[in-house]
């Protein structure tokens, strides 16, 4: 994975606040539906799964199909009751898993 995922998480929040999280994963999301110049089908290669955890507990996840646009964008929320770390992971069809972490300070 040449490009790293881009993430927007607030640095701080109040206890019990619902924060907005945005993630962008650079990826072609080859649908498996397109044909090349010689008429051969270009094999499917997509990010098929995204998982977001907070301090090891599941927050949100998505199973994705080829109808998700290139550079998959996901926006969702999380309720934070204590300071900690978000862990995000993206799973490619080829088995590669890309992860990223982001801390949040809860007062």
């Amino acid at each position: 994975m040449a490009d790293a995922p881009k993430i927007r998480v607030p640095k701080t929040a109040k206890k019990g606040e619902i924060v907005e999280i945005k993630t962008l994963m650079p990826h072609i999301m080859e649908s498996g539906q397109r044909k090349d110049k010689d008429g051969k089908t270009i094999p499917r290669k997509i990010i098929n799964k995204f998982v977001a955890e907070f301090n090891g507990k599941p927050v949100f996840s998505a199973d994705m199909d080829p109808a998700i646009a290139a550079n998959p964008y996901l926006q969702f929320n999380a309720k934070v009751n204590e300071s900690g770390t978000f862990k995000f992971s993206w799973t490619d069809d080829d088995g590669t898993v890309t992860t990223s972490e982001q801390k949040i300070e809860v007062a």
Partner: peptide, 19 residues
């Protein structure tokens, strides 16, 4: 897509971009 939520999601909201 299929989105999976938990009580920690806070809201059952999600956004993405589709083809």
């Amino acid at each position: 897509a299929t989105f999976h939520f938990t009580p920690l999601s806070g809201k059952a909201d999600a956004s993405t971009r589709i083809r």
